[in-house]
Amino acid sequence: MTAPALGKDLTGLEHMTPEQIRLILDTAEPFKEVSERPIKKVPALRGKTIVNLFFEASTRTRISFEFAEKRLSADTVNVAATGSSVSKGETLVDTARNLEAMRIDMVVIRHPSSGAAEFLGDRIASNVINAGDGKHEHPTQALLDLLTIRDKHGKIEGLKVCLVGDVLHSRVARSNLWGLSKLGAEVAVCGPWTLMPRGIQELGVTVFGRIEEAIEWADVLNVLRLQLERMEKGFIPSLREYYRVFGVTPERLERSPKPITIMHPGPMNRGVEIDSRVADGPHSVILDQVTNGVAVRMAVLYLLAGGRAELADAAKRGGGGGGGAGGGSE
């Protein structure tokens, strides 16, 4: 039996196999317990150096990664590279070379340009984990969403999951779409047509133009954050109207025959894409998502650290690659 190794980098879920995704989710389970221990720390990544390289502002993703790293005993450095005067591209190449020269073990990168994580991964020997690249992917967010759905419903296969809101600009939506479909869920998206990417139906996704239709259909609603700047750029006329037409409210949910699990990647705009009574309601698993985020990221860090260099890129190209050696009695 060969274990489905992950390869060198985690840049997205699109090119991963269902087995690889399941491996991460299964590995995340025991890590949940680590965060409940009196000493919330295991020595698995002792001596590993990890750089958290954030070219975009982020609080919760960075904190979640940092906790995951520290609970695995890695040495971490945070680099916030926003507001640099040099152009973004130059910074990225130069940053890659500098990191390589410092012989670090892993890089967690967030960058405003789609493909930035892959770009970095192709140029350095260290493991690269994508913490969000442009509008492309945010794989650890989708993995924690998958874990939360699996915890709540006991399965993912056959569930109807609808991503609601600004799908066009959402890396969370893209990663969720890949992860959910690979694990056998039915996926839909719902939002104004101005925020739907071209060709999304060709990916096997149902598109609902009205939130009422989505609510009638779904077992799970994953409500995406609506960036304020979407209004300024003219994609929607106003936040008020958005709430009235697309807001997830208790009144709308009441019309569903079954309880719908409510998720949100955060940070929430209460009263815009989601009503507070829904966010704080009995079917909300929003805080479970945050808890699971640490476990999933620990699992990813742990699996990549144990991955072998010659398996690099195997996962990216969609091949599974060979697995780790068997354990034996000792």
Binding site: S114, D133, G134, H136, R171, R198, G199
Partner: peptide, 15 residues
């Protein structure tokens, strides 16, 4: 180009 590939790659398309 704005199309399926740009949607997948998360890149802004030119219709």
């Amino acid at each position: 180009h704005e199309g399926l590939v740009s949607t997948r790659l998360g890149l802004k398309g030119i219709p």
